[in-house]
Amino acid sequence: MSGKNFGFVIKAGRQIDIDVTDSTLADDIALEVGAWRACISCGSCVATCPAGISFRSELPTLNRAFQHNVELPTLKSCFLCGKCQLVCPRGIPTRYLSILIMQKLQSRKNVAEGIPSV
């Protein structure tokens, strides 16, 4: 590939291709917390989050646009205050869910890098 420069960059699409979505993590999480799928994207959790996390947009990412290399970096700043859980009209245990998602992501990363689980 010569990679000749014509003075512009071919824009990569932003399209989510559900056909190649990896749903194993979502299914994994649903085994423990089935309720998380009942999210209606009302945004209450985002509005009250002191760490600036958009929990409601991480969930569809996990559900539809997840590939093994996708990270959910904003969840890292969660300090488990629990306010989101308090305001959730669907009764989703968001506080626990936050820990669970990060744990699952980390253990997948560990497996990929050959680090033994604790």
Partner: peptide, 14 residues
């Protein structure tokens, strides 16, 4: 606009 041609070619590519 030359810089914008990336949008153009991306559609042909699709």
């Amino acid at each position: 606009v030359q810089e914008n041609r990336g949008y153009s070619i991306a559609q042909s590519k699709i």
